[in-house]
Design a protein around this nucleic acid. Structure first.
Length: 429
RNA sequence: GUGGGCGUAGCUCAGCUGGUAGAGCCCCGGAUUGUGGCUCCGGUGGUCGUGGGUUCGAAUCCCAUCGCUCACCCCA
């Protein structure tokens, strides 16, 4: 039989690494909620049409990266390649974008059929936020500040913020036309790649690394000359807000998007520590999307964080410790086992947040202590015939200093409460 | 879709110019009759990714194939 294996580009997260992920997610969510964003839970599968209409028919994502399949009744469905489309769809469907502001966040897996490499997977995970009903650059700035706070609480340093304005749709159309015209005039100077992009995504040609194209690219019209007054003011407003907040940024006029729905502000947080996939977080405005999907015209802005990439940048948290239980209950002998089963349940009742492993599968004191040690527990609780007969429990610290002591149950509960509390505080600092 | 690197025990790897498989870690037991971590002793565990070829003989050489990985491309 062929060896069973996970699908290419889709990975398991195992303990103790899962503890790192939980910690990371909890901190991000806490930061997001500190700005009043509320959680929305969305389906992983949507009608294919939703993504075609929002992300864009001719984008790489829609053309060749979506997991698309037929439902039993013939509908074309797709695994979501990103979160914004579903969020907007839900907003329109339930009418919660009408005439009001909304700040929402979501988290979960996204799917793109790409060739996997470092930082790029076929199932990857994002936490994203979307804000609706706010047209000014203040929300853009707020979201960038939110990002900064997230890096702060995660202890991640050295990210570079890049920003740009894509202008509004008419600006972009006008620019695109002029750019295509310019490139057509110099068709002979273009390479095969550029010629292909001329039809699909001409803005991308500006990114070409081929030095032979440099003269043509430098002679191309500059986009910022095509920005409308309103878009320019918006962009200037954003920069002023960032300056006031003390956020450092780099203007990158070549920062564009693989998704068609963005307009005006786009930004990315980038690292050079991850190899080729350096974008850790990307976002921007998409004022036209709600209307494009059939809702009433609604300004909107959002961003998404790539969790696999962020996880790679995390400081050295001690996964073993985060994942390990507080105590391991050792019980040897029939009487002791009986007593310890009841004891374990009472302790879980009375000590909030206690993570207690009760020994299963018999074993000598020696064997059970070995298990206790390997479980990573800070404490061993020991019940032998002697303790069981007297209703006592021996508490033995397994890490650090401290002698073992015999306690009755209420003293044990008190002791565990203070230890668990102290440990929780430690881990959230 | 294209290219580079790599596939040997659960994990990390060694195995030189072909002579038919090893270490460390992990796991289990013992030295310690109610006490883990250190040390020592013993043990479990591999169709050498898969298929074919060359050869008396292949983990080792050749071909194919699959997988992983990194990069191009694209993006979170």
């Amino acid at each position: 039989m062929k060896k069973l294996q996970s699908v290419r580009g889709m990975h398991d997260v195992l303990p103790p690494e899962t503890a790192l992920w939980r910690e990371m997610e909890q901190r991000i969510v806490a930061a997001v909620e500190a700005y009043g964003y509320q959680e929305i839970r969305l389906p992983i599968v949507e009608h294919t049409e939703l993504f075609a209409r929002s992300i864009g028919e001719v984008t790489d994502i829609v053309e060749k990266e979506m997991y698309t399949f037929r439902d039993r009744n013939g509908d074309s469905l797709s695994l979501r390649p990103e979160g914004t489309a579903g969020c907007v769809r839900a907003g329109i469907q339930h009418g919660f974008l009408h005439n009001r502001q909304q700040r929402l966040w979501y988290a979960g897996p996204m799917f793109r059929h790409e060739r996997p490499q470092k930082g790029r997977y076929r199932q990857f995970h994002q936490i994203g936020v979307e804000a609706f009903g706010m047209a000014g650059p203040d929300v853009d700035a707020e979201q960038i500040l939110l990002c900064r706070r997230i890096w702060e609480v995660l202890g991640i340093q050295g990210l570079r913020l890049e920003i740009n304005s894509l202008g509004d749709l008419p600006d972009r159309r006008a620019y695109r036309e002029r750019l295509v015209a310019h490139l057509r005039e110099h068709r002979d100077a273009l390479d095969a790649e550029a010629l292909r992009r001329l039809e699909t995504n001409p803005l991308r040609i500006l990114d070409s690394k081929n030095p032979a194209l440099r003269p043509v690219i430098e002679a191309a019209p500059a986009f910022h000359e095509f920005l409308s007054k309103a878009a320019r003011d918006h962009y200037e407003g954003l920069k002023r807000l960032l300056d006031e907040a003390g956020v450092a940024y780099v203007q990158n006029p070549r920062l564009v998007r693989g998704l068609d729905y963005y307009n005006r502000t786009v930004f990315e947080w980038v690292t050079d520590r991850l190899g080729a996939q350096g974008t850790v977080c990307a976002g921007g405005r998409y004022d036209g999307l709600v209307e494009q999907l059939g809702g009433r015209s609604t300004p909107a802005a959002g961003f998404a964080i790539g969790l696999e990439r962020v996880a790679e940048l995390l400081p050295d948290w001690d996964a073993e410790t985060l994942a390990s239980p507080d105590a391991y209950l050792v019980a040897v002998g029939a009487e002791a086992e009986r007593f310890s089963r009841g004891l374990a349940e009472r302790l879980r009742d009375q000590v909030p947040g206690l993570r207690l492993v009760a020994n299963c599968g018999d074993g000598s004191f020696k064997a059970q202590f070995k298990r206790a040690d390997r479980s990573g527990a800070a404490l061993a609780l020991v019940v032998g015939e002697e303790e069981a007969a007297r209703g006592m429990v021996t508490l033995k610290p397994l890490r650090g200093s401290g002698e073992q002591v015999q306690l009755d149950e209420s003293a044990l509960v008190a002791e565990l409460r203070t230890r668990v509390h102290a440990r929780r505080r430690e881990n959230t600092e």
